[in-house]
């Protein structure tokens, strides 16, 4: 009984656990025997430094600064992007009107917009949130619109023949059928948000994980740099897992085609 549960746990998470252990093991061995240098600290040293930075509150301060910016921009960008994407997918004139914007702007990377953002909004929160919105909105729009156009025409026809109005079809058919596409768009946008926030904080910020990296370079605090890097990796991994899990658990049965 007990061993069976263990075996099941192992079959689900065993691979993961092994993967992570091997990652840190290889890192440890590499920094001890291959590239033995203060510029490449082993995970044990990084971990000790991380604990210290958690204790004195520095890491949490940086972490929460970055996370708050990401969340504010990500939520605002999604709230703007979803209705625009739905409208573009549903109405051809809207699509034609807005496609030049989305098709033009999505090729200008958010990192390239940092200079403009700082000139417009200063080095405070506004410029960071603007950049996260910018990096979120286009992916969410494109995915949402693609989801709408992937809806099987018979789903709409069936609703019409069952007496649904246009508004009802939108709420009860188009929206749920598009949900997996919306969530996938948001998941991709979240990954981009991490890239963007670090780049923005590297250039202009008073706190944040990117600022931590930059300070680390200025003052040669190599351990701090690695703490920041590991934090970014773990945070991104955790958030992405959350999204994957919610897509699987919540939206698995939602699908535009079948």
């Amino acid at each position: 009984m007990h061993s069976r549960r263990l075996r099941r746990l192992w079959s689900v998470y065993g691979g993961y656990a092994l993967g992570f252990v091997s990652l840190f093991l290889i890192w440890q061995l590499a920094s001890l025997y291959v590239v033995s240098s203060v510029l490449f600290p082993p995970p044990t040293v990084v971990f000790r430094k991380g604990v210290l930075l958690v204790r004195n509150g520095v890491l949490l301060e940086h972490l929460s600064a970055s996370l708050q910016r990401i969340m504010a921009g990500f939520i605002a960008g999604s709230l703007l992007g979803i209705p625009i994407g739905l409208a573009m997918g549903s109405f051809r004139p809207v699509r034609k009107l807005l496609e030049p914007y989305t098709e033009f702007l999505r090729f200008i990377p958010s990192v390239a917009m940092i200079t403009v953002a700082v000139i417009w909004f200063g080095i405070g929160e506004a410029s960071k949130i603007f950049l996260i919105i910018y990096t979120t909105i286009f992916i969410v729009i494109l995915n949402t619109a693609a989801g709408v156009s992937a809806i099987a025409p018979n789903k709409i026809r069936a609703a019409q023949a069952l007496g649904a109005t246009r508004a009802q079809i939108f709420v009860h058919v188009a929206l749920p059928a598009t949900l997996p596409y919306i969530l996938t768009g948001m998941r991709l946008a979240m990954a981009n948000s991490f890239t963007t926030i670090v780049a923005a904080e590297l250039i202009a910020a008073n706190e944040g994980l990117g600022k931590m990296l930059w300070d680390g370079r200025l003052f040669m605090l190599v351990d701090d740099i690695f703490v920041s890097l590991v934090t970014l990796g773990l945070l991104g991994f955790a958030v992405d897992r959350m999204f994957r899990w919610s897509i699987y658990a919540f939206a698995g049965k939602y699908s535009p085609a079948t």
Binding site: A152, N154, K155, R157, A158, A161, L162, G163, V173, P176, A177, L179, K253, Y254, S255, A257, T258
Partner: peptide, 16 residues
């Protein structure tokens, strides 16, 4: 809704 429709495939059903 005077005319109910049954389609050939199953893509008209709401999977959610």
């Amino acid at each position: 809704r005077d005319r109910g429709v049954v389609f050939q495939g199953d893509d008209s059903l709401y999977g959610w």
